[in-house]
Amino acid sequence: MASSSKDIQPHWRPNFCNTSALPDIKVVRTNFMINFVCVVVALVALFFVLEREYRAHGLIAEVERMDQQIQEVTPSNELALKESEAFKSVSSNIIDIENFYDAPETMHALIVKVSKLRPEGLSFDQFIVQETLGKKGSKVYVEYKITLAGDVEDPILLSDFKAAVENSDVFEFEARGFKVDESLMARNVTTGIFPYRLSILISPQIPVKEKKAEG
């Protein structure tokens, strides 16, 4: 026997009530809360999307403006780069000149300065300056060795000379320290004088002495 869904009788209930057919008799209705929450969620989602679109729109405008700005200044920038490249190329010649003259001191000035430190009674028979390469790890550096040899009447003069060399500013060069070694040979029995040798090593590997404060 065919029948419509309206004719279907609800299941039997102990309290004889068909709740789905009964009206909503709650004192505080709650249906509106579901609507409210859904609408809020939808509005939040919509705001999020619109805000992003607005930002994207602003960014597109900004990118286009920047693109245009770059296109306008590109020719002058390329010219500037060319000039800069030319300057760099020419300045490498000057760097070569600096490298060529890179030494702590000119030789004639060095001889004069060292000679001024020499005490009376100490003579120079040899004055040698050598330039050598040193190596530490992969770093190669240039060292200078000054060797002085001659005669000294009194060994104390050699000590005085060494002290004068150590305390003078003649060998104070930027980023290069120095150390002094001296040796005294046996006295010449005929003349009574002592042959000596004093060497000064100037190297970037030797720590630079700190200047004492003047007071």
């Binding site: 579901i34 609408v39 969620v41 939808a42 989602a45 999020f48 992003r52």
Partner: peptide, 26 residues
């Protein structure tokens, strides 16, 4: 009986899909 819920759901799902497809644009 819940037309607002349905409309909200459609809007929310559309927004999610929109964000998903254009997410890396920003």
């Amino acid at each position: 009986s819940y037309p607002l819920v349905i409309v909200s759901l459609v809007i929310t799902l559309t927004c999610v899909a929109f964000t998903f497809f254009r997410g890396d644009r920003i």
